[in-house]
Amino acid sequence: MKVRGTKLSHDEYMNQVISVDHHPEIEYAWATGIAISKFLEGLKQGKIYGAKCNDCNRIVCPPRIFCEECFSPMVEYVELPDTGVVNTFSLAYIRTDASRREKPEIPAVIDIDGTTLTPSGFLHLLDENIPHDQIKVGMKVKAVWRPEAERTGSITDIMYFTKLED
């Protein structure tokens, strides 16, 4: 079988073949819905909200208005502590545009304390000043909040999570 295709080098692609450029200018504003707006309002007040399903008894974070398993309404919001456990993390040197950072950002999934039955939490960042060899899966962490006056109702109202000394 013959396999066809015309390979171009980066230089040919950028400078030699005719190409047509387009920079779409487009913007979105998403209404954050019933449950996530509650979550984001909570963050503005320095609180982390989850939700409880009265059928399977899970407490989940972030909150939602229905349980995707039971398909029952989740009618109860639960205020959770601003502490949790590192479920997993990375030392990330690569940026979206593929350029590199000197000092890595530390994305992590934080399982929020007080959630039940399944690991439940959200993506956030860890304190870049924690020595790298001290960062472990299972490490206890606490939210570091932006000063109240600077909070906007965003996931970034938590600046990062830092190691909780035990």
Binding site: W30, T32, G33, I36, F39, L40, P62, S90, A92, I94, R95, T96, E105, P107, F122, L123, H124, L125, S154, I155, T156
Partner: peptide, 12 residues
């Protein structure tokens, strides 16, 4: 709503 503001990329 709660992930993109953190500036993630696929490798993460």
């Amino acid at each position: 709503m709660i992930e993109r503001p953190l500036g993630p990329n696929l490798v993460w």
